[in-house]
Write a protein that binds this DNA or RNA. Structure first.
Lengths: 199, 199
DNA sequence: TAAAAAAATCTACCTTTGTTAGATTTTTTA
DNA sequence: TAAAAAATCTAACAAAGGTAGATTTTTTTA
């Protein structure tokens, strides 16, 4: 019986190893450089092993992105903020921190410079983040219709994701330039403005 | 002498034909489906002909994107708006119209779902659009430092590009859903809010 | 106008990559 | 310990970016 356990454990480890390998390579060289052969090499197997666990390369990417949404959600959930007016603002900053610390992962999740946006598929992971944000909005402005919260969520995402996209696109340029730039400050002002406008 | 003209004319036509072919294929199947062989096929030559005009595939994409910025700029410049407070708002809408009418081109220009953002390279075409926007801002809020206009431009781009990115990402989803959605209205409200905040 | 030079274009190949069929090795079962 | 099952690999395919060198076409020159 324990040999069966060992086997399933090993399979599980191999599976996560594949995902980890994909992340590692992307971190160093970007998603376009992630190949099945490199992944196999990193887990010390031959290429076909990847297809034992995933239908194709896209499925590997999809799962990596999915894990990304889970991480992002748990980061958002971990924040306990009493002040309901500061909550949304704080969420925006956390969102930004996540993107800053995992730029490649973020790009994969939202289809920047890589493959079509996985966020667009709207699986459960994505929807539940949406609920989190909408709840924060309900605290500020109660008694709106569901449709209206949807619109507000969309607008909020425009601001936050727009900021992150621009920041990631311009990152290396900006770093080289003399003028200091305070990304968090920009984002904070923008979200404050938004919160003020809806309350 | 006229045979030399005919030849240069033909070369010029072939060059633009290659660019056009790339656009055509992307329009139908997306940028990831654009191959050198397909381009060559469309212009009725063999693959190596592409390399007579462009260093590699990326160079073809780059030039297509560059033309996109030229088109966008001329669309912005074509608008003559007296009311300086409405100008920025109108610019945002034109920007959106451009993205809506040329979604694939826009994605290429800003690195959505495709290759790294060409906008990040900041060639002249991109910079001159920036100047256009900054001038509109100067009309509303004069006497700021250059650095401050830079920040405002960045913020404005976050709003507009964030909106477009989200709209393009969510497009097919949204179209399927029952609730009507008024993209232009959302964008207009967001930019109005911004303009109000800077004046 | 015919040979030589230059220009335009192609054929045939290389390498990398995603992917798969079928063989081989290893492990488990009876 | 032999047969069955599972795990894994070898060897190949096709499609793609890219290029060297051959071939065809056009132009030049004597």
């Amino acid at each position: 019986m324990s040999s069966i356990d060992r086997k399933t454990r090993h399979k599980e480890a191999l599976r996560t190893g594949i995902l980890q390998a994909a992340r590692n390579i992307a971190l160093k060289e970007g998603w376009q450089a992630v190949t099945i052969r490199k992944i196999a090499d990193e887990v010390e197997y031959t290429p076909p092993i990847v297809y034992e666990f995933f239908e194709n390369k896209e499925a590997v990417f999809f799962e990596v992105a999915m894990d990304g949404f889970t991480i992002l959600r748990s980061m958002l959930e971990a924040e306990v903020i009493e002040d309901k007016h500061k909550k949304l603002c704080r969420y925006a900053i956390i969102h930004w921190h996540f993107a800053e610390q995992n730029p490649e992962l973020y790009k994969l999740m939202f289809g920047i410079e890589s493959i079509p946006s996985i966020a667009a598929e709207r699986p459960q992971e994505v929807l539940s983040i949406g609920e989190l944000i909408k709840n924060a909005m309900k605290a500020i402005t109660p008694d709106l219709e569901d449709k209206e919260y949807k619109e507000l969520f969309f607008q909020w995402m425009c601001i936050v994701h727009g900021f992150i996209t621009m920041a990631l696109i311009m990152r290396h340029r900006i770093e080289k330039e003399p003028d200091a730039w305070e990304p968090e400050l920009y984002l904070e002002r923008a979200t404050r403005r938004f919160i003020k406008s809806i309350q």
